[in-house]
């Protein structure tokens, strides 16, 4: 078995861990934290996949995710917060 395939599989297993926190998390912020974790894991998986097939245009998707991925979590976080008046 290839080394990179093992790395990808471990990343997938770690994603399971993050999604477990998303599903059981008692508060909504725990779920958001899980979303953050999973999104960084997916960026890493894209990088490793680009290393496997040696195509650098796949990294563009990683760039787009690292720029846009945080917008999603910031939007949801701003939406659910409840200000003191």
């Amino acid at each position: 078995m290839n080394f990179y395939a093992v790395v990808l599989a471990v990343l997938a297993l770690l994603t399971i861990g993050g999604i477990t926190r998303v599903i059981i998390g008692p508060t909504i912020w725990d779920r958001l934290l899980g979303l953050n974790l999973v999104s960084s894991k997916i960026i890493m998986a894209i990088i490793v996949f680009a290393l496997i097939i040696q195509r650098s245009f796949l990294l563009d998707i990683a760039i787009v995710y690292s720029l846009l991925g945080y917008i999603g979590s910031v939007l949801i976080a701003r939406f659910i917060e409840r200000k003191e008046e």
Partner: peptide, 30 residues
């Protein structure tokens, strides 16, 4: 070089998302 670019963007954006989650929890009264 592209990997370096990803690293720079991630260093800029990752603390922002962490901070916004923590800030949202704090202002909501946790």
């Amino acid at each position: 070089l592209k990997l370096l670019l990803i690293l720079v963007f991630e260093l800029l954006t990752s603390p922002i998302s962490t901070h916004s989650i923590a800030h949202s929890a704090y202002t909501s009264g946790y």
